[in-house]
Design a protein around this nucleic acid. Structure first.
Lengths: 227, 227, 227, 227
DNA sequence: GATGAATGAGGATTCATTCAT
DNA sequence: TATGAATGAATCCTCATTCAT
């Protein structure tokens, strides 16, 4: 709840008692988004039906459409909130980092936090799970994607201050892709095996990035060491 | 009515043999699979409808069901054929490799071939594209997945002869995941950018695997060199 | 927005209660059941299609499914309502009867009422009309059947107080079977011929039951008299 | 195989080798009818599909339609053959009987034979199982029905020589209906319970008919005795 | 005759969305 | 606002029947 989001509370856009109205509305929206998260997680985004979401939220379909113009909008808003929550949890985390931090540590911490967040908010995975058709990115996922990318870019830029923007963007895309791939495997397993996959994912990212960073100190040693 | 058809006179109590197909049927099947490939590619597997496939093939829905009991069966058969074709193109490629081959070269070649195959058969991507919900792998994708995994394991085993089976399997899973992630990015771009992504994907895999191979000769040097 | 609706403000976490229906919905249900009755009567249960029922009711297929999960449910509800109506018309009729009533009279009255009811509600016949394959009783008909049987057993038990339960059940099954058979013939004819069949049906039942009752007074005389 | 059916063998309707052709055709027809019997028995007439029958017979749908113009025709022909077989087994059974035979005996014997026949040819039941809609008798069942009725009338006429034709017909209809009702119950049970139902069915018929016969000797005594 | 391919309307059911109350 | 009713096109799939070979 940073400063720029509290404004709504102060500005009365409508006459009457907008406070109460909005309060109830907010609750309904939260209710619906929670339900959506559950349904997305359970059935996947595509298979999720608006009726199912409304039912899960304990409201009528009509009510749902009072707050969201369509299914996509629900996904978008849910994504926004998740991003927001992420930001709250980790600050502008993944954001520029003390350049002195070893890459290893930065990556490991980022992965751990990402994964923790995903486990806490399984809907995140469902929303992140890209387009069925490469190239055609649906609006829902788009926003989420863009945000994640920019955050990853932020992180990377502190390690690769000299990289060309295009290269940075590409690297960020790669990292996100690799992360999603790893996450899928992580979520598909449990216990020790899950931990092992987490470890592998870290290796992948560290080894991928390490040579790009290269000349910054003697960090390369780390990447060279096998499991 | 050639001689070998008059046998009917002796009343062959025909058992439940796989009904012999006519040439026309074989053609229809090919046609339907081609149509399915198109539709899967265009809309993704989940959104693809059997009616759409039939329409694309220029036949009635009933005809489709004469050859396939359901959508899943189409995906499975299409997957089988693609795998088969892959095998024909590359032999038991990706299969064990001359251990003297440098990792770099092996990975680069495998990626190039995989990608070439995917570009030639875009449906492959649609079929490979995993489950919406992690853990719940549908039968359609399962077969394809299993085959790919075993091939990758084959390739890896020549580089990691001493790895424990569980580790080998995990590594194979990772490689496949990474590959799929990279492929998505590759397919989402064109021209020089696409090539750049191909290169990145190779880096990812090589750097990920290199330390695991490690002790085999002085191959590590390669991985250390940045783009 | 009357007072009792503002309670929402306290956020009643509404559980999975049987969603309260609106009057309109109740009307639609009645409408749909009426339509179903018509279609069942016209085409028979098996051949009746949900789309046909919806069309007959003048609504879209979707509307039908808002109230009934499937065809079976329609049949069951219709059956329930018919049973209910029957009970209302005749009280716990067919239920135990003054033991002094002559069998003849009891049967005649029961048959007359049953037939009158069937003529008023022809769908009853369609629903009663058993399984296509003996032994495999579908749920729809089952409930109706069971109810009818228990009512017949009730009637019978006042005449056969000493019968073993198994015999009573068997006799009830026979009576129901005979009744259905007779009903079919009755409905297939009109006017005087119909009346004649009604008479025959009564004879059949009376004569079948009379010897079972036997020792109760000199009732046997009746059965001995021919048409 | 009475004399009037062997004629086909002697009369060459077509030139060529009609013998072989017809022979093969007859075999196919028999094959198809057998398959139809199986399918009708398994799924009921309405639910039986021509494709299923062809499959069961091990031939293609096309072949089926080479011999029968439609599903109905199959049922009709199957019914005819069953009737024919019945006639062969029991001669003009159920046909007029030595008037001295006690009614009891005649009915019991007829029921036993009918039931035996039904158990040997379960398709008979499926075909006999009347129209879903009273009054609308489909052609398939019609023929079977008519034949059965005329046979029952034959039987009855020896017991009721003085009955008006209309009464005779009505009584025959009743008997057939009662029989079908009883058969359903008989087939729905097994072992001792089945036998009990057979016994009940006999009682029903005997007691129903006895008073109609009445004046013929002292037969009434039998009917008066309870189980 | 025999085959298997082909049809296409029709079946049950779902779902995003809109409407009347 | 909130509700539940209403929609209708779309989904997968079936089946009696016809057609080309």
């Amino acid at each position: 709840m940073s400063a720029n989001r509290d404004k709504d509370d102060q500005v009365h856009q409508e006459k009457e008692q907008p406070r109460r109205r909005q309060a109830r509305g907010e609750r309904r929206i939260a209710q619906l988004l929670e339900a959506a998260a559950t349904v997305f997680t359970t059935t996947g985004y595509t298979a999720a039906s608006t009726n199912a979401i409304a039912r899960e939220a304990g409201v009528s379909p009509g009510t749902l459409y009072q707050f969201f113009p369509n299914k996509e909008a629900i996904a978008i808003e849910l994504g926004d909130r998740l991003i927001h929550e992420m930001r709250e949890m980790y600050g502008e985390a993944l954001a520029p980092v003390d350049p002195a931090t070893p890459l290893e540590e930065a990556v490991a911490s980022a992965v751990d936090r990402f994964i923790a967040f995903n486990c806490a908010h399984p809907a995140f995975f469902a929303l992140m799970h890209g387009p069925d058709i490469p190239g055609r990115m649906a609006e829902e996922h788009d926003a989420l994607h863009a945000t994640l990318l920019s955050r990853i870019e932020g992180l990377l830029s502190s390690f690769l201050p000299d990289a060309a923007p295009a290269d940075l963007a590409r690297t960020a895309h790669m990292c996100l892709g690799l992360y999603k791939a790893g996450l899928e495997l992580v979520l598909a397993h449990e216990g020790a095996e899950r931990d092992a996959y987490v470890q592998e994912l870290k290796h992948v990212l560290i080894r991928y990035l390490d040579p790009l960073v290269g000349d910054r100190l003697g960090r390369t040693e780390a990447a060279r060491t096998a499991t």
